[in-house]
């Protein structure tokens, strides 16, 4: 336990130092950049809410990734699944009639889940039917979805009309359909999606550790052959995992659209998927770990905005830092395993 903490603390420090080195090399003021980063992330109630809001979609995508990766099913199509969830929810919002608010809200949540889930399921079907590697198919589906959205927003039916300049975005969603705000207002508010993400964390943890389905997911990751020999339909299991994994990413997209941006726009959604994968990996493929990692990266993303304003640090630095943290955490994960091996030799 102590060793694990030491490894991950060291990883964190290494990531900080290398970011500082990068900053310094690019001629920035390291102290000012870091202090503005921290203030931007935690400095005020507004900053805190911003961090939590940024963490929300990362956590949902991270959980979907955890579920897939625990089965060693390499769904890396989260980018597309986030977009698909947002698109599906947006589409549903256009058709929604006069429903009581909670029903309309439920429809949007379900539509988000369905959009991401369907895209995940499609990759799953390609795998079970034709043996296509899910790594390839999910990435390729990303492109298809991104270009579909580009078409829809740029000259397609969802383009904001009546303006002379094209913004590549949809008109604002019906204000009646915006997701309820928990705290805050204006640009710094936390929408109800945060609670959904916390609920999803608890559900994922219970699913993986306590239910027969979670048992099968973990077993699939360790040894699918034995699972097949022991009466589990592994094709069906793979489809279920892809569906659930995609659905969680889709919910993240719907939440961003109806809780935060209120317009369908590629820029606000791109990057959530890949950061979500990082969250899952840094979180050690555990729902609780993903939650901590999501909070960390949410704070990083939120603080970065303030850091840019205050110290003029390039935005790319945050992506670089994200990558460095992932890299060092993966190293730390290897280091913890080395310790395990050494010990097992000692006590074997």
């Amino acid at each position: 336990m102590g060793w694990n903490v030491a490894c991950y603390s060291a990883a964190m420090l290494c990531a900080l130092f290398s970011t500082a080195a990068l900053l310094h090399l690019s001629g920035g003021d390291v102290a000012k950049a870091f202090s503005s980063l921290v203030i931007g992330a935690f400095g005020s109630q507004k900053a805190l809410l911003g961090s939590l809001a940024k963490a929300t979609p990362l956590l949902l995508v991270g959980l979907g990734t955890v579920i897939a990766f625990r089965a060693k099913i390499w769904n890396i199509g989260q980018e597309g699944q986030v977009l698909a969830g947002a698109m599906c929810a947006y589409w549903a919002s256009l058709w929604i009639g006069p429903l009581p608010y909670w029903m309309a809200f439920a429809v949007l949540v379900l539509a988000g889940l369905a959009g991401g889930g369907a895209l995940g399921l499609l990759a799953g079907i390609l795998k079970t039917r034709f043996g296509t590697s899910e790594i390839i198919s999910t990435v390729m589906l990303n492109y298809i979805v991104i270009f579909l959205l580009a078409y829809l927003l740029d000259g397609g039916p969802w383009m904001e009309s009546g303006v002379t300049v094209a913004y590549h975005q949809s008109p604002p969603v019906n204000t009646m359909l915006e997701w309820p705000t928990l705290f805050g207002q204006g640009s710094a508010k936390l929408h109800v999606g945060f609670l959904l993400a916390l609920g999803a964390t608890a559900l994922s943890a219970v699913l993986l550790e306590r239910t027969p389905l979670g048992y099968e997911i973990r077993a699939f990751g360790s040894n699918p052959t034995a699972l097949r020999f022991r009466g589990t339909d592994i094709s069906r299991l793979l489809l279920v995992v892809m569906l659930v994994s995609g659905a969680l990413a889709g919910l993240a997209g719907a939440g961003e659209l109806f809780g935060t941006s209120h317009r369908l726009r590629a820029e606000t959604l791109l990057g959530i998927g890949s950061s979500g994968i990082v969250v899952a990996m840094v979180g050690g493929l555990r729902p609780s770990g993903a939650m901590l990692a999501a909070l960390f990266f949410g704070a990083l993303k939120s603080g970065a905005i303030y850091m840019r304003l205050q110290s003029g640090t390039p935005a790319g630095l945050v992506s670089a830092m994200e990558g460095l943290v992932l890299l060092f955490f993966l190293c730390a994960a290897v280091a913890t395993r080395i310790q395990v091996t050494v010990r097992s030799e000692v006590h074997a």
């Binding site: 027969p212 048992y215 973990r218 077993a219 990751g221 040894n223 034995a226 699972l227 009466g231």
Partner: peptide, 19 residues
């Protein structure tokens, strides 16, 4: 390869197929 889930303990392996 065919009879056990290597990462699972004895308890979980005892119900493999009957989970």
């Amino acid at each position: 390869r065919e009879g056990l889930i290597p990462e699972f303990g004895t308890a979980e392996n005892l119900v493999l197929g009957w989970q």
